[in-house]
């Protein structure tokens, strides 16, 4: 039986530095949910298809189920728990609430982070770019319309709200 080496890694999660002792065959998703109790990041398909586990790694949306834990050494991770600053919700979170883009909520953390990558890069995305940016996030409840509206509302060029 092969003896597995445990590893000590340093990483930044939600702007906080961590030194973690991990097993190399864990994923980033395991670390977040099981080791750190950050259960906002969801465990869905675990084959990269649903996007429920989406987090930002150095500002880019990635599937936490497909990142091997030791690969976060020296990287900056942002999860849904790190979106709000103190009591102040992120503008995307506010918009998701206002536009009723959260139904069961399982897809929401991943959606928010995919949307954040987009808005950080282009604060004024056209609707096609919004749909492209969330194409790796499945939602079984909303039919996506409210989610797209919420992201539009959170972007710099808020469309006029229909009366």
């Amino acid at each position: 039986m092969l003896q597995m080496n445990t590893l000590t890694i340093t990483t930044t999660i939600n702007r906080r530095n961590y030194t973690l002792c991990i097993n190399p065959n864990q994923t980033l998703l395991d670390i977040l949910r099981e080791e750190l109790g950050l259960s906002g990041t969801k465990r869905g398909c675990e084959i990269g298809e649903c996007g429920a586990c989406t987090v930002l790694m150095n500002g880019r949306a990635v599937n936490a189920c497909l990142v091997l834990a030791p690969q976060i050494e020296g990287q900056e991770i942002l999860t849904v728990e790190g979106l709000a600053v103190g009591e102040q919700l992120h503008s995307l979170q506010e918009a998701f609430l206002e536009h009723e883009a959260v139904h069961c909520g399982f897809c929401t953390p991943g959606m928010l982070l995919s949307a954040k990558e987009l808005l950080d890069e282009n604060p004024n995305p056209p609707e096609t770019d919004i749909r492209f940016a969330i194409s790796g996030n499945l939602c079984r409840c909303t039919g996506y319309v409210q989610i797209v509206e919420a992201i539009q509302a959170a972007s710099a060029n808020k469309p006029e709200r229909k009366p």
């Binding site: 996007g51 989406t54 790694m57 880019r60 990635v62 599937n63 497909l66 995919s114 940016a133 790796g136």
Partner: peptide, 9 residues
């Protein structure tokens, strides 16, 4: 290819 998340990794 894949999705934005897959293309990022």
């Amino acid at each position: 290819i894949g999705s934005p998340q897959i293309r990022n990794r």
